[in-house]
Design a protein around this nucleic acid. Structure first.
Length: 830
RNA sequence: GGGCGAGUGUCGGAAUCGGCAGACGAGGGGGACUUAAAAUCCUCUGGCCUGAUCGGCCGUGUGGGUUCGACUCCCACCUCGCCCACCA
C-alpha cells in the first residue's frame, strides 16, 4: 500500500501504472477465487446476458474485442446493480475451415479446432471478461452435438424435419449445398467463400421453418433493432393476394398466384415456369420442338443469368389454351423463364396493362393489352406504359367503377363463390436446408434401408459419432462418403443391411439452441435442465453482429418456437433484447483482411498499454453500433486518461478527512460532491443505454474536474475520498483490472466487482446557480448566471435589464418574451 | 426498381420531448520542464471580418417550409452505406 506523507494535494511519489503486472495479478486472483462463478440461486434478480460465441479460427481478432468487451462492461454493470448475472462463453467449433486445414496441412479437424480453442481461450482471458468458464460449451464435442441429433429426431417425429428432392444451391468451392440464407447478393455467391453457387437437383434434409413464417413476422414479444426486424420481414416476404384457378382446354387446373386479383379481367395470357410440370403435358405436337429447346436452354442457364435485371423477357407459346375463370375467355399459354418455379405456384396470369414485366412480354409477342384499372387522370386512351398504381376498375364486367383496393376483395369473393380461387398468402421464405456434404459437422442420425427406407437412429444409439480415422481428400469431398465402417450399418427396424446418412448438419443448427445448453452444459440426460431454464430464461440481452439477421437470428427464433411446440420450453422468443454492434475496420477504413495487411492484433496493444486501455478505447471510439476504423493514435488518449486516474487516485488517497490536513473550503466540498453525482447520473444512464462512448467521456470530464479541484485544494476535503472511491467504482465495469488495483490501494474490501453500483443523489446533482442564455429574436446575445430556482417573472426582468439585450432591442418594440426556466430567455422585438 | 440507415470542425464523435452547436478524445499551433529528445504539464484550436481582447457575420449535405427559436419537426432533392430484387 502506497501511503503519501500527507499534506493537501502535495505531489508524492507513486509507483508507475504498470498494466501488464496488475492485469496478470488480478486475472489470476479472480480465477483462483472463482469470482465469476455463477450461483444457480434466486437470491438476486437474474440477468442472462449472451454475446455471440466465436468460431475458433485460431486467433482472437480486434473484432472479437469490439464485440465482447462492451458486452462484458454491461454484464459487470448489471452485476454491480445487484443482479445475478450469467455471462457464458463457448466455441462454435464445427465448420469448414477446420476441414480445409485438414486437407491442406494434414491435421485432423478435431486437433486443429481444439488447439485453436486452447489458444483463443487464453486470449479471451486476457480481456479480463467475467465469463463463467465452468459453463463453456464446445459444439464439436459429442456431449454437445448429441443434442443436435436428439433435436433432429424430435423434429422428424413432429414433421418439422423432412427429406425432399429439390433444386438446391451448391457451392462448387466448398463442395456442399447451402441454405438459401447462405447465398448472398445479386451475384448469388456462397456466404462463406464468395464463389457463385450453382443449382443442383438433390435429395436433402430440410427443417420446416415455413410453418412459422407468420409467427416469425411478429416481433411484439421482444425489443429488437428495427433494422433486424425489417431484414427478417423482407426475407420472409409475405405477400397477400389470391390463388386463381384457370382450366386448360384439356381440363387441367392451372393455379396462379397474384397480389392483384382486381386486375383479373386484364389477364390475356398465362406464363408457366419452364420447369412447370404442365409445360410438358400441355405442349401441342406442332410446338413441341420449339418448347423443348427453350426449356433446355432455360435449364442450362445459371440462376444469375436468368435473374439478370435488364434481361429481355423471352418465352414461347406452347400451343395450348386455358379458359378464364370468370369470363371463360380463351387465353393462350406460354412458358417463359421470367416466371420462377420456386415462388408462388410457378405460374402466372399476365396482366400486361398493369405489370411492367407482363407489359414487356406482351409488347414483344404482340399480345393484347386491355386497360382494366383506370388511373385517376385517365383519358380513356391506351396506356403508354404499365400502370401499377391504384385506380378504378374498368372493362371488368360487373366490377366496373369499383376502386381497385375494394376490387381485390370483391373479385376474390367472386372467385371463391365460383369455386375458381381463394384468398392466399405466399412467402419468399423457403424451408431451411440443413444437409451439408461435409465431414466436420453433426452427423444426421438417419439410416437408409432398402426395405424400410429412411429410418431414424433410435435415441438409445445416440450420438452417431464422427469417425476419428477419416481420410481427407484433396478433391474436397466428404471423407464420410468413402468411410465404409461409418457408412455400413444395420437397419434399426429390420436389422438388415443399411447405410448411414453421410451428410452432416449445417453448423447453424448448433447455435440455434446454445443459449439453452449454457444453463446445464454437462447434463447427460437432456439438452438442458428445464429447472435452470425456469430460473434463467429467456435471454435478457443478446449482442452480436448484424450479419446474422436472417441466418442465426432467424434460425434460433425458429428453434425456440419448434421447441415450444414440442413441449421443451414455454418461451415464444429466445432473446428479449438484442443489440447489434458495428464492425471495427482497419486503420485504412477497409474491412480487415490478411491480404490487405490491415489486420490489427489486439495482443500488440494489450502487451504495451494493457487490456484496460484497449477495452476503454474500443468503447470510446464512438457509438457501439457504429463500428469504424481503428485509429492507432486515438488509443493513446485513453491510455493517458488511465495514467492520470492512476496518479490522481494514488497521490491523494490518504489526504482529507482530518489527520491534520487543512480543511478545504465548504464551497469546494459542494463542488466535489456535485461533480461526483452528476457523473454518476450520466454514467449510469449511459451504461443502461449502451452508450459506452459517452460514459467514458463523462469519466474523462470527471477526472479533469477532479484534477482542477485538487489544484484548488479540494483533496483536503472529506468528500474527496468518496469522490475517488466513486471514480474507481464507475471504472470497474469498463476497466476491471486498474479499478481492482486502485480499489485495493484505497483500502476497499475485495473485490471491487462485488461492490454495489453507487446511486446518484438528485439533490446533489442540482446546481445552485445556472447559466441562462439570453436571446433576442432567437440569437444568443448574452449569458447570465442566476440562482437555480429563480422564478419566471424575475428571470424575465433580469433578462430585460441585460445591457447586451438592450443593445439589440433599442428602438424596437418588445412583442413577446419567451422564458424557459433555468435555460433561456428569448426576447422578441420588432 | 423497392426497403432501411446515415450526412455535424482536419479526424473519431457530442448535443435531438425543438432552447448555449462542436462535450470528450485525436491531430495541429504556442509555452513550461530537459544538455537534448521522449514522456509529462499548461494553453490555444469551426470559418470569415487587415481582428489577441471587446465585437460582428456565417456555419450541422442542398433548397424550401413550420416556429419566438430548427443539427433536431415537415416537404422536395443530392450523396454515401447496407439489405432485397423478373417475388407475380
Amino acid at each position: 500500500m502506497v501511503q503519501s506523507p500527507g499534506g493537501a494535494g502535495a505531489p508524492t511519489m507513486t509507483d508507475p501504472y504498470d498494466p501488464k503486472t496488475i492485469e496478470a495479478k488480478w486475472q489470476a486472483r479472480w480465477e483462483a477465487d472463482g469470482l465469476y462463478r455463477v450461483r444457480d440461486d434466486a437470491s438476486q434478480p437474474k440477468y442472462y446476458f449472451v454475446t455471440m460465441y466465436p468460431y475458433p479460427s485460431g486467433d482472437l481478432h480486434i473484432g472479437h474485442w469490439y464485440a465482447m468487451t462492451p458486452s462484458d462492461t454491461k454484464a459487470r454493470y448489471q452485476r454491480m446493480r445487484g443482479h445475478n448475472v450469467l455471462f457464458p462463453m463457448g466455441f462454435d467449433a464445427f465448420g469448414l475451415p477446420a476441414e480445409n486445414a485438414a486437407i491442406s496441412h494434414g491435421i485432423h479437424p478435431y486437433k486443429w479446432t481444439i488447439a485453436n480453442i486452447e489458444r483463443m481461450r487464453g486470449q479471451l482471458r486476457s480481456m479480463g471478461a467475467m465469463f463463467d468458464w465452468s459453463r463453456e460449451i464446445v459444439t464439436c464435442l459429442p456431449e454437445y452435438y448429441v443434442w443436435n441429433q436428439w433435436f433432429f429426431l424430435k423434429f422428424y417425429e413432429a414433421g418439422l424435419a423432412y427429406r425432399a428432392m429439390a433444386p438446391v444451391d451448391w457451392c462448387p468451392h466448398c463442395n456442399t449445398t447451402l441454405a438459401r440464407e447462405q447465398v448472398v447478393g445479386a451475384e448469388r455467391v456462397c456466404e462463406r467463400c464468395g464463389t457463385p453457387v450453382i443449382k443442383k437437383d438433390l435429395e436433402q434434409w430440410f427443417f420446416r421453418i415455413t410453418r412459422y413464417a407468420d409467427e416469425l413476422l411478429d416481433f411484439g414479444k421482444m425489443q429488437w433493432p428495427e433494422r433486424v426486424e425489417t431484414l427478417q420481414r423482407n426475407w420472409i416476404g409475405r405477400s397477400e393476394g389470391a390463388e386463381i384457378v384457370y382450366t386448360s382446354e384439356q381440363g387441367d387446373p392451372i393455379t396462379v398466384f397474384t397480389t392483384r386479383p382486381d386486375t383479373l379481367f386484364g389477364a390475356t395470357f398465362l406464363v408457366l415456369a419452364p420447369e412447370h410440370p404442365l409445360v410438358e403435358k400441355l405442349t401441342t405436337p406442332e410446338h413441341r420442338a420449339e418448347v423443348t429447346a427453350y426449356v433446355h436452354r432455360a435449364r442450362r442457364q445459371t440462376e444469375i443469368e436468368r435473374l439478370a435485371e435488364d434481361r429481355e423477357k423471352t418465352g414461347v407459346f406452347i400451343g395450348a389454351y386455358a379458359r378464364h375463370p370468370l369470363t371463360n375467355a380463351r387465353i393462350p399459354i406460354y412458358t417463359g423463364d421470367y416466371v420462377l418455379l420456386s415462388y408462388g405456384t410457378g405460374a402466372i396470369h399476365a396482366v400486361p396493362a398493369h405489370d411492367a414485366r407482363d407489359w414487356e412480354f406482351a409488347k414483344k409477342y404482340r399480345l393484347p393489352i386491355p386497360t382494366v384499372i383506370a388511373p385517376p387522370d385517365w383519358d380513356g386512351k391506351p396506356l403508354a406504359a404499365a400502370y401499377t398504381g391504384e385506380g378504378t376498375m374498368v372493362n371488368s364486367g360487373p366490377f366496373d367503377g369499383t376502386p381497385s383496393g375494394e376490387g381485390r376483395r370483391r373479385v376474390t369473393e367472386a372467385l371463391e363463390r365460383a369455386g375458381r380461387g381463394r384468398a392466399a398468402v405466399t412467402y419468399r421464405l423457403r424451408d431451411w436446408l440443413i444437409s451439408r456434404q461435409r465431414y466436420w459437422g453433426t452427423p444426421i442420425p438417419i439410416v437408409y434401408c432398402r426395405s424400410c427406407g429412411a429410418v431414424p437412429v433410435p435415441y438409445k444409439d445416440l450420438p452417431v459419432r464422427l469417425p476419428e480415422d477419416a481420410e481427407f481428400l484433396p478433391t474436397g469431398e466428404s471423407p464420410l462418403k468413402y468411410h465404409e465402417k461409418f457408412r455400413k450399418t444395420t437397419c434399426p427396424k429390420c436389422a438388415g443391411p443399411a447405410e448411414r446418412e453421410i451428410d452432416t448438419m449445417d453448423t447453424f443448427v448448433d447455435s440455434s439452441w446454445y443459449q439453452y445448453r449454457f444453463l446445464s452444459p454437462h447434463d447427460a440426460a437432456r439438452p438442458y435442465d428445464p429447472e435452470a431454464g425456469r430460473r434463467w430464461l429467456p435471454v435478457d440481452q443478446y449482442t452480436g453482429g448484424i450479419e446474422h439477421a436472417v441466418l442465426h437470428l432467424m434460425y434460433t427464433r425458429f428453434f425456440t418456437k419448434a421447441m415450444r411446440d414440442l413441449g421443451l420450453t414455454t418461451l415464444d422468443e429466445p432473446m428479449l433484447r438484442l443489440f447489434n454492434q458495428g464492425i471495427i475496420l482497419g486503420p485504412d477504413g477497409n474491412r480487415m483482411s490478411k491480404s490487405r495487411g490491415n489486420v490489427v492484433n489486439p495482443d500488440d496493444y494489450v502487451g504495451t498499454m494493457g487490456a484496460d486501455t484497449v477495452r476503454a478505447y474500443l468503447m470510446f471510439i464512438g457509438p457501439w453500433d457504429g463500428g469504424g476504423p481503428w485509429n492507432p493514435r486515438g488509443i493513446e488518449g485513453v491510455h493517458r486518461f488511465l495514467h492520470r486516474v492512476w496518479h490522481l487516485v494514488l497521490e491523494t488517497s490518504s489526504n482529507g478527512g482530518g489527520g491534520g490536513a487543512p480543511a478545504a473550503p465548504a464551497s469546494l466540498a459542494g463542488e466535489i460532491r456535485r461533480a461526483t453525482h452528476q457523473t454518476l447520473k450520466r454514467v449510469t444512464e449511459d451504461l443502461e443505454a449502451f452508450r459506452f462512448n459517452t460514459a467514458v467521456a463523462a469519466l474523462m470530464t470527471y477526472m479533469n474536474r477532479l484534477a482542477d479541484l485538487r489544484a484548488e485544494g479540494g483533496a483536503a476535503a472529506v468528500e474527496w475520498q468518496d469522490a475517488l472511491r466513486t471514480l474507481v467504482l464507475m471504472l470497474a465495469p469498463l476497466t476491471p483490472h486498474v479499478a481492482e488495483e486502485l480499489w485495493s490501494r484505497l483500502g476497499g474490501a475485495y473485490s471491487v466487482h462485488r461492490q454495489p453500483w453507487p446511486a446518484w443523489d438528485a439533490a446533489a446533482v442540482r446546481e445552485e446557480t445556472v447559466t441562462v442564455v439570453l436571446q433576442v429574436n432567437g440569437r444568443v446575445r448574452d449569458r447570465i448566471s442566476v440562482p437555480a430556482g429563480i422564478d419566471e417573472a424575475r428571470l424575465r426582468d433580469v433578462a430585460l435589464e441585460s445591457e447586451r439585450v438592450r443593445k439589440f432591442t433599442d428602438g424596437k418594440a418588445v412583442q413577446d418574451v419567451i422564458v424557459v426556466p433555468g435555460k433561456l430567455v428569448n426576447v422578441v422585438a420588432r
